[in-house]
Amino acid sequence: MKTAMSRRQSESMALVGLFAALIAVMGLIPKIDLPLGVPITLQTLGVMMAGCLLGPWRGLQAILLFLVAVAAGLPLLAGGRGGLGVFMAPTTGYLIGWIPAAFTTGLLMALLPKATALRAAASAFVASVLGGVLVLHAFGIAGLVLVAKIPLMQAFWGDLLFVPGDMLKCVLCALVVHTVARALPDWRLGGRGA
Rank of each mutant, 00 (worst) to 15 (best):
L45E: 05
G80W: 05
L15N: 03
V38P: 05
L111P: 05
F66H: 15
F66Q: 06
T104I: 13
G37P: 03
A62V: 14
S123T: 13
G82K: 01
L65E: 02
L112Y: 11
L108M: 09
I99C: 13
S128E: 10
A127T: 11
L18C: 14
A24T: 14
L95S: 06
G73Q: 04
G55A: 10
P39H: 06
P35C: 14
L64P: 12
R58D: 07
L45A: 05
A89I: 09
A121I: 07
V16K: 03
G131V: 09
P113I: 03
P113Y: 02
G27Q: 07
Y94G: 07
A110W: 01
L54T: 13
T104G: 00
L67W: 05
A121H: 01
Q43M: 02
L76S: 05
T44D: 10
G82H: 08
L76G: 01
L77Y: 03
T104Y: 04
A120N: 07
A21S: 14
G80V: 11
I63R: 07
L18M: 14
A72P: 00
V25F: 10
L118T: 14
P100V: 03
G93M: 04
L74T: 09
A122P: 02
I29H: 06
M13D: 00
A69H: 00
L95V: 12
G97V: 03
G106R: 02
V126C: 05
L107M: 09
T41F: 02
A102H: 08
M26V: 03
Y94M: 11
L130S: 11
G82F: 04
G59T: 15
W98C: 06
I99D: 03
L45N: 01
P56K: 12
Q9C: 08
Y94E: 05
L54V: 13
I63S: 08
Q61M: 15
G79V: 11
Y94W: 12
V38E: 00
G51H: 10
K31R: 15
L42N: 01
L64M: 15
V38Y: 01
E11I: 12
L67I: 06
F87D: 04
V47T: 12
S128N: 11
A110T: 00
P30Q: 06
A124W: 04
G37D: 02
L64N: 06
V47K: 02
A24Y: 03
L36A: 15
L28N: 10
I29L: 08
G73T: 06
L53M: 09
